[in-house]
């Protein structure tokens, strides 16, 4: 991984669970606990999308959650990145033929990083956040370029 030159701050993550089985969600929390300790990289879960750089989404999005997810995405400041954690958000996975699901997530909001797995391991989730970091670095550069 190269050096970060433009995005020079801790990465704040907002986590939204949209109809997942909870498996991915506990692994996200497990990534924060002492064994994996994502906070040592400055990665932190925050309580509001308005403070977040990265949106972590799990699940295949039930019917009435789609507009809420859009609103969460719109509330986030630029530059922002979206990570989908788990198979069901990526492709529908096991829940491919439900009457109440409207996923996959990339049909609702733009997605930057996919983490396959049912559920993915905490290491994979941290790796995805690092990948999002690189994306943010690029976006930040573009934003600064516009300013000049």
């Amino acid at each position: 991984m190269g050096k970060l030159t433009n995005f020079k701050r801790s990465l704040w993550v907002f986590h939204a669970s949209g109809g997942s089985c909870n498996g991915c969600d506990i692994e996200i929390i497990a990534a924060l606990t002492p064994r994996y300790d994502a906070e040592r990289f400055g990665i932190k879960l925050v309580g509001s999308p308005r403070h977040a750089d990265v949106l972590l989404v799990t699940g295949a999005i039930p019917r009435d959650f789609a507009d809420k997810l859009k609103r969460i995405y719109e509330q986030m400041p630029d530059p922002k990145a979206v990570i989908v954690v788990g198979n069901c958000g990526t492709s529908g996975g096991l829940f491919y033929d439900s009457y109440n699901l409207v996923g996959p997530i990339d049909e609702i909001i733009p997605v930057d990083v996919y983490v396959p797995g049912c559920p993915p391991r905490p290491e994979a989730i941290i790796d995805a956040v690092v990948k999002a970091w690189l994306k943010l670095e690029k976006l930040e550069k573009e934003l600064e370029g516009k300013k000049e």
């Binding site: 492709s91 529908g92 829940f95 491919y96 439900s98 009457y99």
Partner: peptide
């Protein structure tokens, strides 16, 4: 009604996210 297997069923509301 999701569990009904007549004209009130939800088969027409199913969204296939990927092909089997």
């Amino acid at each position: 009604y999701p569990w009904r297997r007549d004209e009130h069923g939800v088969d027409d509301m199913v969204k296939y996210m990927h092909k089997s």
